[in-house]
Each structure stands twice: as structure tokens, then as C-alpha cells.
Design a protein around this nucleic acid. Structure first.
Lengths: 212, 212
DNA sequence: TAGATTGTTAATCGATTAACAATC
DNA sequence: TAGATTGTTAATCGATTAACAATC
């Protein structure tokens, strides 16, 4: 591996990268060209060493005694995350959570474009929401291959999550962002990220009790 | 500390407890009275030792060679999380994400009851959504102290998150579940749990790229 | 009894934090 | 030059995994 190449970093570092992106874009908008790790750390409430280590995984290097070039760092983080070229995604399950995510316009800035939603409810199918068409589940497979979509956001009720996940795997989807409160089993080739609200609520509950 | 007392466990363990709860409730419904760590581990795709260590933090003990009593384990986990007696919560920001969370009926099973929503938009104020009244922000403080609410779900846009968070801290709120894509600064006495969707999307992006 | 499983201690692993030379 | 900050190696810390005696 070349010396300054990006490497597969630790999950906590990866999850902090969007925070840096947010601050850096603000700096860029304000005409700031250089940013140091200490400056980034104070504006995000982190330790400086954490910022340096996080940036290290992107392969971007700074100038000793000066800091990092803002524009270069933005590009580097986006490159690392693959957020510079937008990828299309499907949303499956047009319930309230699904609609909330369709209405969340932050995804576009993160290189994610929801191109179609799917649902089995005939009352929802045929319409559109926030400019995204709601299609019947039967269209899923043909559209996935035609549009080369490989990311799916799963917002169906828990009891149908496994079945839909299997369908998605069968369609060649390679990443599932699972909002259903269920553990889903998929082939190894499919990455699953569980957005488990009950896990977060558990963490918050304990932290409140013990004042953390 | 007494030998079998619950202790403040590690975050990863705490976050897995709701999964056990889900499986255990299913077992209880099916009339199963005993559950072993190996059985729980296979149904959730975890290692057995992980399950044992997770249960350990609740202070619940099993029977050597047999397993854990399902009912006792359910109670123990709920006790540990404080989910047996329901606590009231406010939701601030009745946008699409806020509405999605109001429509999510899983919270009640986790001991959380959203009793009021707040918003500054006059078009939303005065109405109700899913049986929860939408009130003006000006009512926040008086209601918080009157109802002794100490958990708030923050679903306002990023640029007003800090201001609202400060108001919440000022109202005596002790826990904020932050869905806004911003780092918020609050007094030490307030616990914050960031539900950062961009962090999750970053993690998923990298995992898809490196087939994890 | 034999098999299974807990409770607990020890070993490994990985991430975070500290330290410091290099250098702008 | 003096101060600041990077890049990198070393040290610490904590979590995960392994092992095994106790016992149902």
C-alpha cells in the first residue's frame, strides 16, 4: 500500500467524518482555506488527537505547523466515503418513517439519491411523495437491474422485514440500511447497517439514570 | 456493591439489550420458560459469550447447566433500562421526522410516552397528530415543570437545534435524543444521544465499498 | 452419570491517548 | 527564530474472546 493511501479505518472514525465535512463546508463558505486539527476539535467538542487520527484514515496529509487545506480535506473525505459521485437508492416501505426519510433532503449532500419508493399498499402505489414515485413491490426486481441500484433503505414493519430483505438480496442490492426493529439475515455479499432506534433509546435511558 | 447487582455496562452491551427483549417476549408468548445463552445467540446471530456478558450487566443470574428464566430475564432487562415504568417525553419539531416518530408505536413498549409535541410553525400549532397535541414553543417551559417531563426528542432543522437544545436544558430536561444533524452543546447535567443519520450513511458507504 | 450451561478469571485484541521528533 | 502543528511511534486503556471449574 502506498504510504499516504486511504485505508479501511475504524468504525468510530468513519462515523465522525460527516461532522468534519459539515464544519469544513462552513469554513469553505466563509473563505477559510486552512484548518488545523485543534481548530476542528474545538468546534466539534473532540480531542485534537482524535481529529488527527480520523483524518489519517482518509490518506489526506496536512502541512506541518500549518494544518490541512480545507478544499483538499473536503475532497479527501468525500472520496473516502464515495460521496462525490451520487448513487441511486430505493426506499422500501412508504409508511411514516419512509416518508420522513423521503422528506429529508440531507441525503443528496451525502451522495444518495432516492429514485423510487416501493410499497404493497394499493392506496400508496401509483402516487408520488416529494417527487419520488411509489411503485408496487412487483416492480422491484426489474427496476433494480435496469437502473443498477444497489442501495436500499428498509422502512417496512418488523414482521415483513426479513422477507423484503431476502427479496432485496435477490435483486442484487449490495447495501441495506435497515430501519425495521428486527435482525435480518442476508447473504455475505450484502452489507447491512441497522438503524436501531430501540438500541439508542436503551443507551439514552441508562445514561440518564447514571448521569452520563 | 452486592455481588449480583446490576452495574453500568458497556455501551455495546446496553444497545443489544432490546434485541434480547424482543426475542424473549416471543419466547414468553410461546410458553417457553427457560432460555440459554446459546439459544439466544443463534437466534440473533451473536456469539454465546457475548450474550452471557451482556446479561451479566443486568445482574440477573441463571441456573448452571440450564439457562435463564425467561420471565425473570425480561424483568431484569426492563429494570436495568428503566423501561418498566413509563416515562413521559416531549417531541420538539413537528416536521416529517417528528411526525414519523410520533407515528412509531414501538416507543410505548420501551417505556416512552410522547405526551406533547412543540413547534413554532403556526400552521402546525393547535392541531394534533396521532393523538398528540402540537403546542407552541412558548408553552414548553411551563409544561415541562408541570408534567415533570425530563426526556426530549429533538427533530428540528439543524440551524435551530442549538437554540432549542439550550431552551430544553433550561427547562430541566435531563436527556435529549438529538435527530438534528448538528453537534449541540448542553450543560453536563444533560445527557445527549445523537441519532446521526449521516454517520450511519458514512458507515454503510464504506462497508459497501469494502464488502464488509 | 453424562451433557449442557453458567459464572468468572485470564488472555488477547484493538482502539484510544500520550509523547515527541520533524518541519513549516 | 519561536510557536504551532503534523506524522508517527509507543503506552495505556478497555473491550472482546477464550478457558475452565462448578453444578444443575
Amino acid at each position: 500500500m502506498p504510504k499516504n493511501a486511504a485505508k479501511v479505518g475504524k468504525i468510530p472514525s468513519i462515523r465522525r467524518l460527516p461532522q468534519y465535512l459539515r464544519v469544513l463546508r462552513g469554513l469553505e463558505g466563509a473563505g477559510q482555506e486552512v484548518a488545523s486539527s485543534s481548530m476542528l476539535s474545538t468546534s466539534l467538542g473532540l480531542e485534537q488527537i482524535v481529529v488527527k487520527k480520523d483524518i489519517e484514515i482518509t490518506g489526506i496529509t496536512g502541512k506541518t505547523g500549518v494544518g490541512y487545506m480545507v478544499a483538499e480535506l473536503i475532497d479527501g473525505i468525500e472520496d473516502y466515503l464515495g460521496w462525490n459521485n451520487s448513487s441511486d437508492a430505493f426506499l422500501v416501505g412508504a409508511g411514516s418513517m419512509g416518508k420522513a426519510l423521503l422528506g429529508y433532503d440531507g441525503f443528496r449532500r451525502h451522495g444518495l439519491q432516492i429514485v423510487a419508493a416501493f410499497d404493497n399498499d394499493e392506496g400508496k402505489v401509483g402516487g408520488e411523495y416529494k417527487g419520488v414515485p411509489v411503485l408496487p413491490m412487483s416492480k422491484l426486481k426489474s427496476l433494480a437491474s435496469r437502473l443498477h441500484v444497489h442501495i436500499a433503505i428498509l422502512t417496512v414493519p418488523g414482521d415483513s422485514a426479513q422477507e423484503v430483505a431476502s427479496q432485496l438480496a435477490d435483486c442484487g442490492i449490495s447495501g441495506i440500511w435497515n430501519f425495521a426493529p428486527t435482525t435480518i439475515q442476508v447473504p455475505e455479499s450484502v452489507s447491512v447497517l441497522n438503524e436501531d432506534l430501540s438500541a439508542s433509546l436503551a443507551e439514552l435511558s441508562v445514561r440518564i439514570q447514571s448521569n452520563m
